[in-house]
């Protein structure tokens, strides 16, 4: 199903021509891979996805420079519906299921932008196979589902368009750890079936586990990138992303870092999340 690499080149985005959200961001989502984008609130993660999907105008934003290409074809400037037809589909932050529509109708809505109607039944079968709970609740209003079920519906709805690249914006936000792990496993399965995934997450442990490559965004710029294993092992990411200093047991090359004073006292709490 993969139809080429998703390339973001020197992308700059601003809102209302005043607020710069992204500055010269470049990243690649190779066909068939899982690529993670990490970063704190306000780092520009959601703006990046909006720029790819073409929804910046909903927020009075726009692309100032650079662009996005899929397998050599420019996506910048396309309307959201046209982007969906190229095979790049986003699961927005906060799930955003259509609460007044039934689960079944939400899935139907997901298929509205699909390229051709032929594969819709097959896509539906695949989605219900991934998320059997959606079949059980087909006739219920989506607003009545639990948070985890809504996230499953949001992902399933996006899969109805048979994407070659799936953009996920914080799919585990606000979910219980067990449910988050479940979503993570599903994302891995979706990728295994041939869909490239661009995963935007604050849950770095989960994202690094799923992704082969990760980028760290910081105030609108790529602050670090590398293989997930390297980023998970090193403390570069830990410092940048969490604002914490290196553990005192490690080499003291971080002198000058403001947080080092605290590190020296050795009284910082351990971050259990990073051991996963």
């Amino acid at each position: 199903m993969a139809s080429g690499n998703l390339e973001v080149r020197d992308l700059s985005v601003s809102y209302g021509r005043a607020v710069r959200a992204l500055r010269g961001v470049s990243l690649d989502v190779p066909a068939g891979s899982v690529t993670a984008v990490l970063g704190a609130n306000g780092a520009g993660k959601t703006s990046l996805l909006r720029a790819i999907s073409g929804t910046l105008p909903f927020h009075r934003g726009g692309v100032d420079a650079g662009g996005v290409r899929l397998g050599g074809r420019a996506l910048t400037g396309l309307r959201p519906a046209a982007v969906v037809r190229t095979g790049v589909v986003q699961v927005p932050e906060g799930r955003r299921v259509f609460g007044r529509l039934t689960v079944e109708e939400n899935l139907k809505a997901g298929a509205l932008g699909a390229r051709g109607r032929a594969g819709t039944a097959e896509a539906r079968a695949r989605v219900l196979d991934l998320f059997p709970v959606l079949a059980e609740r087909a006739r219920q209003r989506a607003g009545l589902l639990s948070g985890g079920e809504q996230q499953m519906l949001a992902i399933g709805r996006a899969l109805m368009a048979r994407p070659s690249v799936l953009l996920l914006d914080e799919p585990t936000l606000g979910l219980a750890p067990l449910v988050a792990a479940r979503i993570g496993a599903t994302v891995a399965e979706i990728n295994r079936q041939g869909t490239s995934v661009l995963l935007v997450e604050q849950n770095a442990a989960l994202a690094l586990e799923l992704a082969s490559t990760a980028y760290v965004l910081e105030v609108g710029e790529v602050a670090a990138r590398g293989a997930s294993a390297d980023l998970a092992a090193g403390d570069e990411l830990r410092r940048r992303y969490l604002g914490a200093a290196a553990p005192p047991t490690e080499r003291g090359e971080d002198t000058g870092d403001a947080a080092d004073a605290a590190a020296g006292r050795g009284d910082r709490p351990t971050l259990a999340r990073w051991t996963g």
Partner: peptide, 23 residues
């Protein structure tokens, strides 16, 4: 119909409907 679903989806959340490919 698909038209009806598109209309109701757009009525509820235009941006998300656009993300689903609704024009």
């Amino acid at each position: 119909t698909s038209w009806g679903v598109a209309m109701r989806a757009a009525a509820e959340d235009g941006e998300t409907a656009a993300l689903m490919g609704v024009r």
